[in-house]
């Protein structure tokens, strides 16, 4: 078991390393000097920068230096959006805003998605189930920008008399969080509901449910004690990837609702070609996601007594 954990951590580290390598070589593939804002800077500036980033040295030396900088948390400085401001500090300032919204979005998605999925499984084939199926299939088919923009339009003044929430985001005002969290959590909620329905149905068909019924347990006890626990375990594994989805939805939702979070900043840095910010943020978010997936994996191992990690996760 300890070996499996080590193997997982090793794979995670390898992944982060792969992403870091990718970002390094992509930087070098960009035409011109990606660390400059102007197209034709004075030669002196160029030399200074080349020396700073070691661009005059052979590629492998640059690569090792780059990795060393990463380990020290040096992600370079912004060249366009906030000139000469360290990328690491930008991330440190903006990530908490995104994380708060993402956290609440996932929270409601899980708290509502799991019970709805179980309810649908329990009422399989009946009206409740069909209605939930329709909503959830729709939910996983609506891109987040559609949900976010339509909500923004409908509830922020587009429809007369329905202006329930402020148009401009204000940190700390709860009303500013309602729509972003809803639109961000809608897809994961539907996805989680679908998955929990499937795993609940799977659990309900197992032999041990038959045993529990033959033992004379009440329906409620069978559902909540025997089926639910087994059904929830697979749901946990979907949570890791869901964090990733939520984050990506974050790019869109923050853009639509003009939330000053890392997601919107990332999108802006892409459109203004602020390479250090793009690369640094990618690396940071990738490490964050890999870390979350690792955490979910380890959590899963802790909760399920029979799990042998790596023994076919599919």
């Amino acid at each position: 078991m300890a070996r499996e954990i080590l193997k997982r951590i090793g794979t995670a580290a390898l992944t982060v390393f792969a992403v870091a390598t990718l970002t390094f070589f992509l930087t070098r593939a960009v035409p011109g000097n990606p660390f400059l804002s102007e197209k034709n800077p004075p030669q002196a500036v160029l030399d200074a920068l080349n020396e700073k980033y070691g661009l005059d040295q052979p590629l492998y030396v640059q690569y090792v230096k780059y990795l060393g900088n990463l380990l020290r948390g040096d992600l370079g400085v912004s060249v366009k959006l906030q000139k000469d401001y360290p990328v690491a500090r930008i991330i440190g300032e903006m990530f908490p805003v995104s994380a708060a919204i993402g956290f609440f979005a996932l929270l409601w998605a899980v708290l509502l998605g799991v019970p709805l999925g179980c309810l649908a499984a329990y009422r399989r084939g009946r009206g409740t189930d069909s209605a939930l199926q329709v909503v959830c299939t729709l939910g996983v088919s609506l891109p987040s920008f559609v949900v976010a923009s339509l909500l923004l339009f409908a509830f922020c003044g587009g429809i007369a008399g329905w202006k329930l929430f402020p148009t401009l985001f204000q940190a700390g005002d709860w009303r500013s969080y309602v729509l972003p969290c809803f639109s961000l959590g809608f897809y994961p909620m539907c996805y989680i509901a679908r998955q929990s329905r499937a795993s609940m149905l799977d659990a309900l068909g197992q032999d041990y449910i038959k045993t529990a019924r033959a033992k004379g347990l009440r329906t409620g006890r069978i559902l909540f004690k025997h089926a639910l626990r087994n059904a929830l375990l697979p749901v946990l594994t979907y949570l890791g990837p869901q964090v990733a989805f939520t984050l990506c939805g974050g790019f869109v939702v923050e853009t639509v609702f003009t939330i000053p979070g890392l997601g919107r900043y990332f999108v802006q840095s892409i459109s203004s070609r602020d390479y250090p910010v793009i690369l640094g943020t990618t690396l940071f978010l990738a490490s964050f996601l890999v870390g979350m997936n690792l955490l979910v994996d380890l959590l899963y191992q802790a909760v399920d007594p029979r799990i042998r990690l790596g023994r076919e996760a599919a």
Partner: peptide, 16 residues
């Protein structure tokens, strides 16, 4: 009346 089943591998709940 009690009943026991064919497959003891799957008839016990794995998480308890």
């Amino acid at each position: 009346a009690a009943m026991i089943f064919q497959n003891p591998m799957t008839s016990l709940n794995p998480v308890y």
